[in-house]
Nucleic acid binder design. Sequence first.
DNA 1: CCAAAAGTGTTGGGAATACACCCATGC
DNA 2: GCATGGGTGTATTCCCAACACTTTTGG
Lengths: 216, 216
Amino acid sequence: MLQVRSARLHVMLWRRANEPFSGSWALPGGPLLADERLGTSVARQLASKVEVRQLAHLEQLETRSDPDRDPRGRTVATAYLGLVPSHLDPVLPDDTAWQPVDALPETAFDHGSIVTSALERLRAKLSYTNVGFALAPPTFSVAELREIYVAALGYEVTATNLQRVLLRRGVLEATGETAASGRAGGRPAALYRFVTSSLEVTDPFAVLRPPSSRAR
Amino acid sequence: MLQVRSARLHVMLWRRANEPFSGSWALPGGPLLADERLGTSVARQLASKVEVRQLAHLEQLETRSDPDRDPRGRTVATAYLGLVPSHLDPVLPDDTAWQPVDALPETAFDHGSIVTSALERLRAKLSYTNVGFALAPPTFSVAELREIYVAALGYEVTATNLQRVLLRRGVLEATGETAASGRAGGRPAALYRFVTSSLEVTDPFAVLRPPSSRAR
DNA sequence: CCAAAAGTGTTGGGAATACACCCATGC
DNA sequence: GCATGGGTGTATTCCCAACACTTTTGG
């Protein structure tokens, strides 16, 4: 589960009290029940940590099967990527906390590398889909959205170009409302929202695209 | 396992002799052994059908967990995408055959939708990576490569543009040799090869790319 | 009037498609 | 020489990044 908090991307981890990896931080998870599908299982595992309704997006990442990934014995685990919009602040259990992805504490099992995979996936999808909807609040100024993208991508993005790319693609639309300007003055920002709040690919083929509009 | 054969993309399937889905066609697969990782298991399953060395590329696709996917009872299956270069023609068991992906016979379980996922993945990666290496023979003319891309993508691509895109990205290089011209004459084609024969992303960010070369 | 913040106009570059044209070979 | 297939040159289009400039607010 990833969320942008205070302009930094964080991952939700819980601190293990028992061996193995006692004291290390782990991703939430647990065994699959007899008649459960993986997506349902993930939701169930997370429900013990937060309110699941706060998850704006969930997608399967990859399945890890290294026989040595758990020292207690063979386990096969399927990792999921979950995103929480930045305006929410779920109540967390005592052993659970948001950790900045750019300065992770010591992690248990192969969870560190799973977080790395999740990051790669998120960063790629920010570029060619509308996933931003799952990190952003319902409405926002371009400046706020920029902060979220910068936190998630890990590099600078200008508000100007971000706005133009997302508007041209029809990913964002203006709400017609404006935010109040800050105490230091400045023009009030227009508020925007994501047109769709489910995953859509907005930039399908970079190259080798089908010949212009002619059906085959 | 996918391969381009006679300018058409095919998938290797075997015909089930027993219930359930007797007579339908299925993807090769089987249970994971106690101390085996998934990639190894896939290789082992395929080894019973073909020579595994002929697999030029193998990558994990997704894990299916619908409790009803197998009428005999709950199974969880991780699908892989495997690619075989077009110049190879593996000897197949009697119950196994290459089936064209655009006219699949009746398939067992959820294997039809797995093939669809595999196709989407392959088509996307042809556009932003060098995966082509795993479908093409060691050397080839641009015309031959075009035929492979057209078969895999399912739409027309011109030799001119294919050549330019792949050369500019440094994915292809000329071998310096030329093919003999056909019986009808014509200029002999230059032969090319893929520079690398392992997966590389050649077109990372379509948009929202990091600010020009400045490190953060 | 000035500082601050938001938003628009404009330019320049790069990359991809499309199409015209030139090249090399067999018959 | 002509048909056939291969390859290059070039124009057009589109999209993105960069940056200058304008707009709108608070003090």
